[in-house]
Design a protein around this nucleic acid. Structure first.
Lengths: 124, 124
DNA sequence: CGGGATCCGTTTCGATACTG
DNA sequence: CAGTATCGAAACGGATCCCG
């Protein structure tokens, strides 16, 4: 059966209304850098510097802020090793893995169709 | 098999790099209002005023701008009827339907898990 | 009813410099 | 190496007025 917005709301009324927790999660998870960081972590544990290189174009400020948000949301773990030089590793939590299982098909589709989508909007 | 970022990039190198078309699509589709408008359209054709009410909290400016972007991207159709008073209807294109088939499972998961996700980040 | 145009405060973001 | 601090530019977003 087709999954529609009405169907989701019939199961839990008030879903995705203004102020609903889902709105906050949506903002964190679907944000420009949030998606890209989460995606980079689908390959497994990554160090700060690796993420900085993998997530092409991200500034240190945005990477730090994004990782802090995702960690606070319980989607990403941060492990700091008391060494010199310092080493910090990030990884998906089980919750984050669950999320990405559902997001990766979407990203794969976008990867396949992005060129076609932007054909019509060239020049804006 | 598990779908990871590396796997996607092994199929098409340079995916989701800065300046790649996928980045633009990501920004349009995963934007705060873009997601909500697309979701509202999974229920079928909707008039401007319906969308304004359904997408709780959206301003006229943002709704107009979001719909213009999604229409230019070929994900949404805009049909204007030459009547008085004017009537304009929006609907998903086949491409938009395909996209939402992949996005709705994600939204359903967020709906189920949002409360738990935000538990740990309360107070930020 | 369905927008477009404009003004303007707020927030976001990137670049740079600095620190443990 | 892994961040934080600060600043200016830019984008976002709401309010308002207008029009077909």
């Amino acid at each position: 059966m087709k999954v529609s917005f009405d169907l989701l709301r019939s199961e839990s009324p008030g879903l995705f209304e203004d102020g609903c927790p889902t709105r906050a999660v949506l903002d964190h998870v679907m944000s420009k850098w949030g998606v890209l960081v989460l995606m980079a972590l689908t390959d497994g544990t990554r160090r700060w510097g690796e993420l900085r290189r993998t997530v092409d174009g991200v500034s240190e400020k945005m990477l730090a802020s994004t990782l802090r948000t995702l960690t606070a949301d319980g989607l990403v773990t941060r492990t700091s090793y008391p060494e010199v030089p310092p080493r910090v590793e990030y990884a998906l939590t089980p919750l984050g893995e669950e999320l990405m299982e559902r997001m990766m098909p979407l990203m794969a589709w976008i990867g396949d169709n992005a060129a076609g989508i932007l054909e019509s909007s060239r020049g804006r």
